[in-house]
Computed example of a mutant assay.
Amino acid sequence: MTRSILFVCLGNICRSPSAEAVTRAKALARDLPLELDSAGTGAWHVGEPPYGAMQVCAAKRGYDLAPLRARQVTAQDFERFDLIVAMDADNLRNLQDLAPNSARAKLALFTDFAPQTGADHVPDPYYTRDFDGTLDLVEICADALLDQL
Rank of each mutant, 00 (worst) to 15 (best):
D77W: 09
L146G: 06
T117H: 06
A99T: 13
D37G: 13
A27W: 09
R30Y: 04
L83P: 00
R80M: 04
E79Y: 12
D37V: 11
A27P: 00
I13Y: 01
G52E: 15
D77L: 13
R71M: 08
P125R: 08
K106V: 14
K60V: 06
A27R: 04
P49K: 15
A43V: 15
D64G: 05
A25E: 11
E139F: 01
D143G: 02
M1I: 04
A108M: 03
L149E: 02
F131A: 11
S16D: 13
F113M: 06
F7Q: 03
R3P: 00
L36Y: 14
C9Q: 04
L92C: 05
G42R: 13
G62C: 10
Q148T: 07
A75C: 08
S102T: 15
T134N: 09
L137W: 07
R104F: 04
F81R: 01
L83S: 04
A59L: 11
A119C: 08
L34Y: 15
L145T: 05
S38Y: 10
T111N: 02
A66Q: 07
A53G: 03
F7N: 02
G11Y: 12
F78R: 02
A39H: 00
A29G: 03
I84V: 03
D82R: 07
S4G: 02
T74W: 04
F131R: 08
F81M: 05
G11N: 09
G11C: 08
R71P: 01
D31K: 13
F113T: 01
D136F: 13
V8G: 01
G133I: 07
L92D: 01
P17L: 13
D88F: 09
S102R: 15
P33M: 13
T128A: 15
A43L: 12
A70G: 06
E48H: 14
S38R: 08
L109A: 10
K26T: 12
E35S: 11
A108N: 07
L98M: 15
Q148Y: 01
